[in-house]
């Protein structure tokens, strides 16, 4: 759907986007993760054609002779619609601009859960409601590409789940999705590919599994031991799996992905002494800080 090859954007001496290459295909969702100022929003503007690349090539595949904007749904980072308009009026305005049937408006308001508020003025909306109106606007005309700039800010956990549900539905219909986010833990499991950006360049990209493999971060195994049975685990004291946290009743083991199954087997020989057990693989938060710290080192 979109393909960027070595795209850069400079403002004078200042490089905002540096040699970025990636692609998003239909039915794929890609997340861009990075600090504020890492170039996420500029990347979105480049794709929208609002900013011209200084170098590199940017392709958007659409039918020849068709304005690519007709196939793109965009939700900007901060958007405030005219407060005097009702939600319905706002959506109808954008539907007319996109030359989409006005019948879709009520369907979309229903989908994002704003049916009952459709005739209220936007200035009475909460931040979450405004964000959902923004999402409805982006979904007008069933776009082939969705660009969402930090879409879940202001949404409570319930609405976030609902939001990702909508995205999944779009994906099964063949939509390509590019989403930028700070909220790392919530996009885990929702996203096919992750790009980590720092100071304008992509420091790593791949699936979550590929990122885990590249980072070689340890998996944590928390074991809660029944009272009086601590001595059973004394043998593990010699191994290098054990980290400093070793209180009498709970032990934390650290191991690489490859050693996990073997270590679990060893632990499970003491099954009767274990009250509870938790396996925590490195999360996206851990991976993100790992890669950024790695890149920060000279």
């Amino acid at each position: 759907m979109i393909k960027l090859t070595q795209v850069s954007k400079n403002y004078g001496q200042h490089t905002v986007v540096d040699q970025v290459s990636f692609s998003v295909s239909p039915e794929q969702s890609v997340a861009i993760i990075g600090h504020n100022g890492a170039g996420k929003t500029t990347l979105m503007k480049l794709i929208l054609g609002l900013v011209r690349p200084s170098e590199g090539a940017l392709e958007i595949s659409t039918d020849p002779g068709r304005d690519p904007h007709a196939d793109i749904g965009f939700l900007p980072e901060t958007v405030s619609f005219p407060g005097e308009m009702t939600g319905n009026q706002v959506l109808r305005y954008y539907a007319k601009l996109k030359k989409v049937s006005l019948n879709q408006c009520s369907e979309l308001l229903e989908l994002v859960g704003l049916s009952t508020a459709a005739t209220s003025r936007v200035k009475t909306y909460s931040k979450g409601m405004r964000q959902r109106l923004g999402l409805a606007q982006a979904l007008l005309g069933n776009p082939k590409l969705l660009l969402l700039d930090e879409p879940t800010t202001g949404l409570d956990p319930f609405l976030r789940r609902h939001f990702y549900g909508i995205l999944r539905e779009c994906k099964t219909k063949g939509t390509a999705i590019l989403i930028s986010s700070h909220a790392l833990s919530e996009i885990e499991g929702e996203i096919d590919k992750i790009l980590i950006m720092r100071k304008g360049s992509v420091i790593i990209q791949g699936t979550l599994e590929q990122l885990r493999e590249a980072a070689q971060l340890p998996t944590q195994i928390h074991v809660e031991v029944l009272a009086g049975e601590e001595s059973r685990f004394a043998a593990f004291q010699q191994t290098d799996h054990l980290n400093g946290e070793n209180r009498s009743s709970s032990i934390t083991f650290l191991c690489q992905q490859s050693e996990k199954v073997e270590l679990m087997g060893q632990i499970m020989t003491h099954q009767k002494a274990i009250k509870n057990l938790q396996i925590i693989p490195p999360g996206l938060d851990d991976l993100y800080s790992h890669f950024v710290e790695q890149a920060d080192q000279p």
């Binding site: 904007h69 900007p76 980072e77 901060t78 958007v79 619609f81 005219p82």
Partner: peptide
């Protein structure tokens, strides 16, 4: 300032 210009320009107009 409202943030709607960015949105407007992302439309096919």
């Amino acid at each position: 300032e409202q943030g709607t210009l960015l949105l407007l320009l992302s439309y096919p107009i």
